[in-house]
Amino acid sequence: MSAPMLASVPTEPVTVPEAVLALAGGEAVTPVWRNGLGGLTFRLADGRYAKWSPPGVGLRAEAERLAWAGRWARVPRVLEIGADAEGEWLVTAPIPGRSAVDPRWLAEPATAVVAIGRGLRLFHDALPVAECPFDWSVERRLAQADERIARGSGPAEWFAEHRHLDPEQARARIGEPPPIDRLVVCHGDACAPNTLVADDGGFAAHVDLGSLGIADRWADLAVAAWSTEWNHGPGYADLVYESYGVVPDRERIAYYRLLWDLS
């Protein structure tokens, strides 16, 4: 097994799925993102985005979450969803802004990181927990962790700070979560690439809501700040917390980062 695969812009030629070619109608197709599950996102000539994934990834679940969250938050509007034997696709309308890991914002990391923190606070404040039908609780994620461990997942798939643990040690450490600080509707994958930043450096929108659900806000915060280390370099994590408006809670940060690796 290899180290965790970080999502990134494809740097090698990409085979465009037939479904995406059909959506493009003979016009240009530009691959813009590859995730760690084999999924690809393409920009079509008319500005639409087509997200494609192998069968079973669950793009329909993401479409449902986007439609729900779009009532209160800035997220892409779903235009079409479909599937065939090769995979699934989700087409969304363009939304202004560039990913926080676009070269523009990699060159201005502090601006991007502030937008990540402020955008996450807006997201958590806007979405109503009482009306949310989706769950991202520790209990649900621990069940996923147990399934992964049973399939042989282990330290080689985790980030460096957890690789000294074996699966049994990690599972024992993750067994009892800290008390909930504030229950919110979490993004579920609040890593830096999933925040869009406006041209003026402000927060623009969120994308990739396939895991959205109710959880402690630290489930998002811990990973959002962690991801700035992977994407923007060391020294920016605390700026996420500051921009969000919270004091770092080291116990909850450690817990939810380990849960991220396991689940």
Rank of each mutant, 00 (worst) to 15 (best):
residue 86 E to C: 14
residue 44 L to K: 03
residue 33 W to T: 00
residue 151 R to F: 03
residue 172 A to P: 04
residue 44 L to C: 06
residue 255 Y to E: 00
residue 208 D to S: 06
residue 65 R to A: 05
residue 49 Y to T: 13
residue 238 D to Y: 05
residue 255 Y to A: 07
residue 124 H to P: 08
residue 63 A to L: 12
residue 193 P to A: 13
residue 230 W to F: 08
residue 109 P to S: 11
residue 233 G to L: 10
residue 87 G to E: 04
residue 259 L to Y: 07
residue 102 D to Y: 02
residue 243 S to M: 11
residue 98 R to H: 11
residue 242 E to L: 12
residue 254 A to C: 06
residue 52 W to V: 07
residue 263 S to V: 05
residue 117 G to I: 01
residue 178 P to R: 07
residue 20 V to N: 03
residue 37 L to V: 10
residue 79 L to M: 13
residue 101 V to W: 08
residue 170 A to E: 04
residue 231 N to L: 13
residue 67 A to K: 14
residue 117 G to L: 02
residue 231 N to D: 12
residue 181 D to H: 14
residue 169 Q to V: 11
residue 86 E to I: 02
residue 257 R to D: 06
residue 54 P to L: 06
residue 201 G to K: 11
residue 59 L to H: 03
residue 65 R to S: 14
residue 193 P to C: 11
residue 73 A to H: 08
residue 28 A to I: 03
residue 143 A to V: 13
residue 75 V to K: 12
residue 16 V to R: 01
residue 26 G to T: 01
residue 94 P to F: 05
residue 95 I to D: 00
residue 138 V to F: 02
residue 163 R to M: 10
residue 54 P to C: 11
residue 256 Y to S: 07
residue 78 V to S: 08
residue 259 L to G: 04
residue 48 R to A: 11
residue 165 L to N: 05
residue 166 D to M: 08
residue 106 L to F: 03
residue 174 I to T: 15
residue 68 W to E: 12
residue 244 Y to L: 10
residue 3 A to Y: 10
residue 95 I to R: 04
residue 66 L to V: 05
residue 79 L to Y: 09
residue 193 P to T: 14
residue 6 L to A: 07
residue 68 W to V: 07
residue 87 G to Q: 04
residue 253 I to V: 15
residue 102 D to M: 02
residue 213 G to C: 01
residue 92 T to M: 13
residue 239 L to Y: 01
residue 120 L to P: 10
residue 245 G to P: 05
residue 132 C to M: 02
residue 206 H to P: 00
residue 132 C to I: 09
residue 46 D to Q: 11
residue 112 A to Y: 02
residue 92 T to D: 04
residue 60 R to S: 08
residue 41 T to R: 01
residue 117 G to E: 03
residue 248 P to D: 09
residue 210 G to S: 07
residue 47 G to E: 12
residue 39 G to Q: 00
residue 215 A to Y: 04
residue 85 A to D: 14
residue 19 A to S: 12
residue 160 A to H: 05
residue 222 A to P: 10
residue 5 M to D: 14
residue 150 A to V: 13
residue 107 A to I: 01
residue 228 T to E: 02
residue 48 R to K: 12
residue 252 R to M: 05
residue 9 V to I: 15
residue 21 L to H: 09
residue 108 E to A: 15
residue 50 A to Q: 03
residue 29 V to C: 07
residue 112 A to D: 04
residue 101 V to R: 06
residue 12 E to N: 11
residue 110 A to P: 00
residue 100 A to R: 09
residue 52 W to L: 07
residue 3 A to L: 15
residue 163 R to A: 04
residue 93 A to T: 01
residue 247 V to L: 15
residue 150 A to K: 13
residue 73 A to F: 01
residue 217 R to T: 00
residue 260 W to K: 15
residue 117 G to S: 08
residue 263 S to F: 10
residue 174 I to Y: 03
residue 225 A to M: 00
residue 124 H to V: 00
residue 13 P to F: 10
residue 106 L to G: 08
residue 30 T to I: 04
residue 255 Y to Q: 01
residue 189 D to L: 11
residue 88 E to K: 09
residue 117 G to M: 02
residue 29 V to R: 10
residue 90 L to N: 12
residue 97 G to Q: 02
residue 177 P to K: 03
residue 236 Y to D: 10
residue 171 R to T: 08
residue 67 A to W: 01
residue 58 G to I: 07
residue 4 P to W: 11
residue 258 L to E: 09
residue 184 V to D: 06
residue 209 L to G: 01
residue 155 P to H: 14
residue 33 W to K: 02
residue 211 S to E: 11
residue 30 T to R: 15
residue 127 L to W: 07
residue 235 G to A: 09
residue 44 L to W: 01
residue 252 R to C: 12
